[in-house]
Design a protein around this nucleic acid. Structure first.
Lengths: 415, 415
DNA sequence: AATTAATAATTCAATTGGATTTATTTATTG
DNA sequence: CAATAAATAAATCCAATTGAATTATTAATT
């Protein structure tokens, strides 16, 4: 057989990838244990037989794994389910007190430190506001905060802390002006490696991730994630940010900025091109309030302290919704997201109004040929960033990213 | 420890996912074999020791696996490499004749049937043009074409055919008008299941995938893929289509339409909003030629039969480049692609001009805050769709999607 | 030129460890 | 009591690892 001269492939540079490593029994066991835990977490409670069916593992294997997990205290048994033929099944569920994790959200106006349990509930929290963040203050807040919260735990509980996850904005030194910080005050952040600094003063493993990505992760794991395999996520904080979920996993991209969506170009109300973050950010609302002589302080103290600020807030919601709708259409033109999820550092009644307004604005746009995602509210809420941060150590150690092992090739075959 | 009342998680619908299944030895071996083959394919030729280092598997394991693959004829040994201390290493490379695969590209103006070898080279091909496609004709072309090409193979070679992969457009029945088909002639396609029909008449496994996605897959595997872990891909055919590559794997999305990019809204030259496919498609050029009394037939006969059509073609390239540049900026605002790859059913000199024009147009846009991808030419060329189709059976059976096993969690940890 | 040391690729044999298979026990319904 | 299903125990299987041995080469020394 001779080579027909089809189109020649032009030469390309050498590969830049180190593909995934090989597999062996040890890793298989580790993976299967995480899989079992993740399945239980996802479904709330499952019997050994259920897990065997869902994982495709043999009953015996699952039995062994789950006995170990139970012995370690990660799983606990529920009430036997009777009423069906055969031996009653014993649903196993995650033991909420098996693992704790600290989450630090540091923002441009406030910081939160939370202690989260194994099922994603906040068990304790501390809050601090400031005009603008400074490394030393943040560091002091974390160190003393962790000490304070740990004092409320007994020895056994302290041993179960998996680590600390930090959720922080990108490039804090930009936007100093918008935040209202004195010129140069934010420049210190250029030189700071917060993760390393904190890690050197704390006895736990420390993880770090962009704040909006963290919020997105919280939504994936504890919010609407289980119902939507892929979505684009918006978190409206002092600045808006976002995240991307694909195949039920966070996609953070090559530079970690996938789904940053702040710089997305949108058309402003006067037809001018603006960046999304110049419209749909709380600092914009803050400025609008200040211009009208209204004290914006309640915006930062706690999401639940918001009051109805009347007309300026109404205008802000409208402007934001218009911009968000455009951003969602742009995103949907590239990828067929099943949902666009909107959440933010505000009370749920504000969130409802933002989402409804965005739905209304999206309907006004030209949607021909675009597969529009469902536009829905986030289910996690104002603390999503801290919760997402706190979930980093837990996921790194106990759970698995969905669908990464032996993923099926998704082209259908027929013979 | 009492539950602090943090923000309550609102209830969500039950999970819709069946996460990945469990792992066992059999799957581990299957995976490791695919991993070894994929590594060899990616790097061209690697010794057993090289594979051991790159895969993290022990030398012994790799030795056993590679001996099996060699015995099966999938790998063959090259010339020993001397000149360095120690026993000379024997580079193993993919045996191009180990596996063959058919690829069918069916389009709105022409169809191609190719026989591809294990390293992605086209070994034989058939081509047919038509005014518009009809199921019976396509079916006849495939059946007789496969018979014809198989007759040129000996028995041993015939046994090595892995299957047939079809690359076809979405919803052929839309756009009948633009194609110039008589009203209703394309409606038959609504009821047709081409994959099933062909599968029932052929003795090979049959796979099917969107045509632009297939082209994107060919680029990933045989083109620039190894150098760019994520890119957005445009294939300019009679209609423009595209694909998305993330983490060195095709992302086709929930509905399989991820990266369809045809309906992406762009601003036309008179400021009006148009869909990308209404500007940057070859059928547009066809119409421009026809309006000027130039015979457009050479567009369809073979990509290499294109001549310089002069002014109308120049105009088409300019318009297309403007639209493509906008599409790339929109895509880059959502995800941080490392590259935007442009290819099409035209000769490489046209591709070069389109790409250069797109680079120029992109530079004119407002790029503040957007991480712009490199805009580059596809390395595969006009037959990308057929090659991508043909690679479906091969990937399904012998190779692995990159990075799907034991993927590392990508949040850095410090202790 | 012959000899020896060092290095690296490869393979052989024994061991390890986790999943599966098969058989058994337990608890329930009808 | 029969049928059914969950859960477990013991035996078996299988692929990866470990550690030692073999082979082929270069580099240094006599």
């Amino acid at each position: 057989m001779s080579t027909l001269d089809g189109p020649e492939h032009t030469p390309v540079p050498p590969p830049i990838l180190n593909p995934a490593g090989g597999a062996n029994q040890v890793r298989v066991r580790a993976y299967n244990e995480r899989l079992v835990l993740s399945l239980v977490r996802l479904y709330g409670a499952l019997s050994k037989a259920d897990i065997a069916r869902r994982s495709g593992l043999s009953a015996q294997t699952v039995s062994v794994i789950m006995r170990v997990l139970e012995k370690e205290g990660l799983l606990s048994r529920g009430e036997p389910v009777r009423g069906r033929v055969g031996q009653p099944s014993i649903p196993m569920h995650i033991n909420p007190d098996a693992v704790y994790s600290f989450g630090l959200k540091m923002g441009r106006r406030s910081a939160d430190l939370v202690l989260m349990d194994f099922v994603g509930r906040i068990r304790m929290q501390l809050h601090r506001t400031y005009a603008y963040p400074l490394p030393d203050e943040i560091l002091a807040f974390v160190i003393s905060g962790i000490r304070e919260l740990e004092e409320r735990l007994d020895d056994k509980q302290r041993c179960r802390i998996a680590g600390l996850g930090i959720a922080a904005p990108f490039e804090l030194w930009n936007w100093a002006e918008e935040v209202g910080a004195p010129a140069g005050a934010m420049e210190v952040w250029r030189e700071i490696d917060l993760q390393a600094d904190i890690a050197s003063r704390v006895s736990h493993p420390v993880f770090m991730q962009n704040d909006a990505t963290s919020a997105c992760g919280a939504e994936l794991v504890f919010g609407v994630g289980p119902s939507y395999p892929d979505f684009v996520y918006f978190f409206i904080g002092s600045f808006i940010g976002g995240g991307i979920v694909l195949n039920s996993a966070i996609f953070s991209g090559r530079t970690g900025t996938a789904g940053a969506i702040g710089p997305l170009p949108v058309r402003g109300k006067n037809g001018e091109t603006k960046q999304l973050l110049e419209i749909a950010s709380i600092f914009v609302l803050e400025n609008m309030l200040r211009e009208r002589g209204i004290d914006p302080e309640p915006l930062w103290y706690s999401a639940d302290d918001w009051v109805d600020f009347g007309e300026p807030m109404e205008a802000w919601i409208q402007d934001s919704a218009k911009a968000l709708a455009q951003a969602i259409v742009a995103a949907a033109s590239i990828l067929d997201f099943s949902a666009a999820v909107i959440d933010g550092g505000f009370p749920s009644w504000v969130r409802s109004r933002v989402v409804q307004a965005t739905i209304d604005e999206a309907a006004k746009l030209d949607l021909q040929g675009v597969v529009m995602p469902e536009i829905i509210e986030g289910a996690v809420g104002a603390q999503a960033r801290a919760i997402g941060g706190a979930s980093l150590p837990i996921f790194a150690r106990y759970l698995t990213d969905q669908n990464v092992l032996f993923k099926e090739v998704d082209h259908a075959e027929r013979t």
